[in-house]
Simulated scan of single mutants.
Amino acid sequence: MDPKADNSSKSFTAEINLEKLQKIAAELILPGRFILRPLNAALEFVTRLLAWVLGCSLVRRHFHLMLSGLVLFGPVLSFWVSKYSIFANGNHYLYRKFLRSTWGWTCLLVGSFVVVLSFSARRSVPLTLRHLSRVGFAGLLWWGCRRLLTLLEDAAGACYEPLAPAGDAQSSAAPAQPLLLLHQDQTKASCLRANMMWRGYEVSQETLILCLCCLLLVEELSVFGRHLAQERRSHRSPGAPLRALFLLCVVLLFLWMALLLCLLAYFPAWPAQQLGGALGYLGWRGLYQGWFRLTPAQGSPGLPGEGLFTGTDSAKHSH
């Protein structure tokens, strides 16, 4: 058999198979475009609407007041909610998967959004890292607050071990409160791990981190509307990944607010939750209303959107 004829037949067969694959791919891509086109239009509409709402000066200036009212008056809802609700179970999926890793979810999504937004607006790695550092500083603040609160709780509280009453002494008498044996060498964490009782002054770390993350999300997401306006003037459109990240961050904001409301309504703890909310507010105030307003020469990473947009747009935007 002629090897040249064999090679030509193989190449001809490969060309036929390649043409078939191209036709099959074209047939699959065509309906996919019809499906993705309305989804992309819906994504653009929803993100444009949410960007307008979060960028509104009324929302940005008064969101902390709304959050403060929620923390103050949220425990009143405990008189109307049912204790048999699924949200009254402390082992609920939302509490286990999201509440215990609040900062991790916030850091992941907000950090990704800040990186993509900053780099797509200016294509500058140093500027992108400078804006991303705001998330890092907020994380350091949360770590410091958690360490300090843990030390204060260990110093101001005490661990008690319940003692079962003797059977003979309680056989004819009414049931009495169990006796408590004091353990002064225990920390709060070790006390709870040993299934003992901890009594002392506490500050709700869950309320603190939820309030801090909600305020941080509103601050970082509020500049997306300005980015849309700048892209529109440049006759460009932000890509679907950036819009999807923005939408995920908005969903995360609503999730944190819902979890905060569930904590206040189903697990009220006065005044620990109010103290935690106040510390979260003070942390946001010190960062976004204080340090981040300073100039980069003073070691500040700047406010969200600073240096990313045109001078005209920045002048119109009031912090």
Rank of each mutant, 00 (worst) to 15 (best):
R236L: 13
S237A: 15
G239R: 14
G239W: 07
A240W: 14
A240C: 10
P241A: 08
P241W: 06
R243N: 03
A244E: 00
L247H: 10
V251Y: 05
L252T: 06
F254A: 11
L255W: 06
L255Y: 06
W256Q: 04
W256T: 01
W256C: 12
M257I: 12
A258F: 15
L261N: 05
C262H: 08
C262Q: 12
L263F: 12
L263P: 14
L264C: 10
L264W: 09
A265S: 15
A265R: 07
F267N: 10
F267R: 05
P271Y: 03
Q274V: 06
Q274K: 02
G276W: 08
G276T: 06
A278Y: 04
A278Q: 06
L279A: 12
Y281H: 13
Y281W: 15
Y281A: 11
Y281V: 10
G283P: 02
G283T: 15
W284R: 09
W284T: 03
L287A: 14
L287D: 00
Y288S: 01
Y288L: 04
Y288D: 00
Q289D: 09
Q289I: 00
F292N: 02
R293I: 00
T295F: 09
P296R: 00
A297Q: 04
A297P: 01
G302N: 10
L303N: 01
L303Q: 11
L303R: 12
P304Q: 04
